[in-house]
Amino acid sequence: MEERFLGEVVLPGVAQSVAVARHCVGAMLAAAGHRVVEDVRLIVSELITNALIHTASGLHGGVVTVEVVAVDAEIVRVEVTDDGADTVPRARVSGGDDCHGRGLWLVEQVSLRWGVRLLGAGQRAVWAETFTGQAAPGCAGEGVTVGAAYTGHEVRG
């Protein structure tokens, strides 16, 4: 099976977009027949939260883009594109009393692999691939469109 684009959602760089993205990605995966989606939803939460905290996406007018691709019937890649920063995301070990700093460590724990792609115009994409279980038979159609909760934000499928 070759990779199959499942969908994309573009959201404003605000905290509420984390929940919207989790919902949209869950709907995309369900429509494509993927059954084990909680790890993907966790990855989406962590990658978007990092983008909002550490990049220009969290500034006024910033956006985050989430793209979902079925690598095969059992593996999905989620990619979050942000508006860029001067740093490169990396997993780190947090102290027991630290309130932050575990996001990429969690992504590393639940994903098969993850990485960062530097894009033009200062943007970057942080991606992760994870197991979602066997897709249900007959779900080999093209990408699905999922409506965003915010009017006027692009959603492609």
Rank of each mutant, 00 (worst) to 15 (best):
M1N: 05
E2N: 11
E2F: 05
R4K: 14
R4P: 06
F5L: 10
F5P: 01
F5N: 00
G7H: 07
E8F: 00
V9I: 15
V9W: 05
L11K: 06
L11P: 04
V14H: 07
Q16G: 08
Q16H: 08
S17H: 03
S17P: 06
A21H: 07
C24V: 11
A27F: 07
L29G: 09
L29N: 09
A30F: 14
A30Q: 15
H34D: 11
R35I: 09
V36I: 15
E38R: 12
V40C: 14
L42D: 09
L42H: 05
I43Y: 01
E46F: 04
E46Q: 13
T49K: 07
N50L: 08
L52I: 14
L52W: 10
A56K: 14
G58M: 09
L59S: 13
L59A: 13
H60I: 14
V64D: 03
T65N: 08
V66K: 02
V66M: 02
E67W: 01
V68K: 01
V68M: 01
D72E: 10
E74G: 14
E74V: 12
V76F: 05
V78G: 01
E79F: 00
V80N: 03
T81G: 02
T81F: 04
D82H: 02
G84C: 06
A85Q: 11
A85D: 13
D86M: 09
T87R: 12
A91D: 13
R92T: 15
V93S: 12
V93M: 12
V93N: 10
G95Q: 11
D97P: 00
D98H: 05
H100M: 07
H100R: 08
L104N: 00
L104S: 00
L104I: 03
W105M: 11
W105H: 11
L106F: 10
L106N: 04
V107Q: 01
V107A: 00
Q109T: 11
S111R: 02
S111K: 02
S111P: 03
L112F: 01
L112I: 13
R113V: 01
R113D: 12
R113M: 03
V116I: 09
L118H: 10
A121L: 07
W127Q: 02
W127D: 00
A128H: 02
A128N: 01
A128V: 01
A128Y: 02
T132K: 02
T132D: 00
G133Q: 07
A136H: 07
A136T: 11
C139P: 00
C139S: 13
C139F: 14
C139T: 14
E142N: 06
E142T: 06
V144R: 08
V144N: 04
T145H: 14
G147F: 12
Y150F: 15
T151C: 05
G152Y: 13
G152K: 12
H153T: 15
E154M: 11
V155N: 09
R156S: 09
G157L: 06
G157E: 05
